[in-house]
Amino acid sequence: MSRANHMTVIPFGGLGNRLRVLNSAFFLSRDIGADVELVWFVKPELNSELGDMFAATGFEYFPMSRWKRALLKPFLKHIYIQKYESTYRRFLRLFYDQVYFDNDLTVRSPSQLRAEIAQHGRVLIATCYQFYDFENFDNLVVQPQLRQRIDALTARFDRNTVGVHIRRTDHTALIKASPVELFTDRMKQLEGEDPDVKFFLATDDASLKTALREQFGQRLITQDIPLSRATAEGMQGAVVDIYALSQTKKIICTTRSSFAQMAALIGAEKEIIEVC
């Protein structure tokens, strides 16, 4: 059997989406003996380079050259690929032996995908979905300055601290399916069961932080910085939130969010309290 020797990987979406694509590629490359070329676009939905957030990934890869990435950035947009998939596929097959987009990956099992890709020398994968199995995100190492912030924040935690993740500002379907009351009802329930309970709130909505602080008072722990995807500061704050969530033993969330999924897969096993 011939082996794939080169996979070009383009992760789309926000931080959780991109990192599950990245880990899928890393663990697949390990199993088939391929190298990984990473195309990491800095865009409004994630305005930060990978290296500004993570000091190491635990796997070897090489970034696409800056000039080539700059040429591709206006052209390779997720929304365009979804709309004109066949056109993109025909063009990209001029440069790659096989091309995989969202629809290709969702209909293939990891074993099917592994067998297929192992037959090709040059493969392009452009998606926002996990496409290969991995156990956790423990291979990722955050930058030291972010680790300091995580440690300072979680020093306020104790064994009674419960994580809460509520995404609000940019995911209309998720907001509609999971109103805030679903989260606060679970928080009140835990408050009634445990008089010492605390909550760490991770959210991208500043007004929600204020409202829940008024409701839960000193029980509520949160970061007091904007968490906009459109700024490098906001993305670094998002990394701090994910890793702080990962150090709680319970997380109230919807697992439809890749942010919460990632937090659940860092460190020790956690109880997930699903709201919808």
Results as ranks from 00 to 15, higher is better:
M1S: 15
S2A: 13
A4S: 15
N5Q: 11
N5Y: 12
M7R: 04
T8Q: 02
V9N: 03
G13P: 00
G13H: 11
G14N: 05
R18G: 05
L19F: 10
V21P: 07
A25M: 07
A25H: 11
F26E: 07
F26H: 14
L28M: 14
I32N: 05
G33Q: 09
A34F: 12
A34Y: 06
E37A: 06
L38G: 08
V42R: 12
K43T: 15
P44C: 09
L46I: 13
N47T: 08
G51F: 02
G51E: 11
A55D: 05
Y61N: 09
F62H: 15
F62P: 01
P63R: 03
R66V: 08
K73L: 07
P74N: 00
F75H: 10
L76Q: 11
H78A: 09
Y80L: 13
Y80Q: 09
Q82F: 10
E85M: 09
F91L: 15
F91R: 14
L92K: 10
L92D: 08
L94I: 11
Q98Y: 02
Q98F: 00
D102Y: 13
N103M: 04
V107D: 01
V107G: 05
V107M: 06
S111P: 14
E116C: 08
I117P: 00
H120G: 04
G121E: 13
V123H: 14
V123C: 11
I125Q: 12
T127K: 10
T127I: 11
N136C: 08
F137P: 00
F137W: 08
D138Y: 08
V142L: 09
Q145W: 03
R149H: 10
I150M: 06
D151C: 04
A152S: 14
L153D: 02
L153N: 07
R156I: 07
F157M: 06
R159T: 05
G163D: 03
T169Y: 06
D170W: 01
D170E: 03
I175C: 10
K176Q: 11
A177F: 05
V180P: 02
T184L: 13
D185C: 06
L190W: 02
E191S: 12
E191L: 10
E191D: 14
E193Y: 06
D194W: 00
D194E: 01
P195G: 05
D196H: 14
K198W: 01
F199G: 11
D205Y: 03
A206C: 04
S207D: 09
L208P: 14
T210D: 14
R213V: 03
E214F: 00
Q215G: 08
F216D: 04
G217N: 06
G217F: 02
Q218I: 10
L220H: 04
L220E: 01
T222N: 10
Q223N: 05
D224A: 07
I225T: 12
I225M: 12
R229V: 12
A230G: 09
A232F: 02
E233G: 01
M235D: 00
Q236P: 09
Q236N: 02
A238H: 01
A244G: 08
A244N: 05
L245P: 01
S246T: 07
K250D: 02
I251Q: 02
R256E: 05
F259T: 02
M262D: 03
A263T: 03
A264E: 06
A264G: 08
K270N: 03
I272H: 12
I272Q: 11
I273K: 00
I273T: 04
E274T: 01
C276W: 12
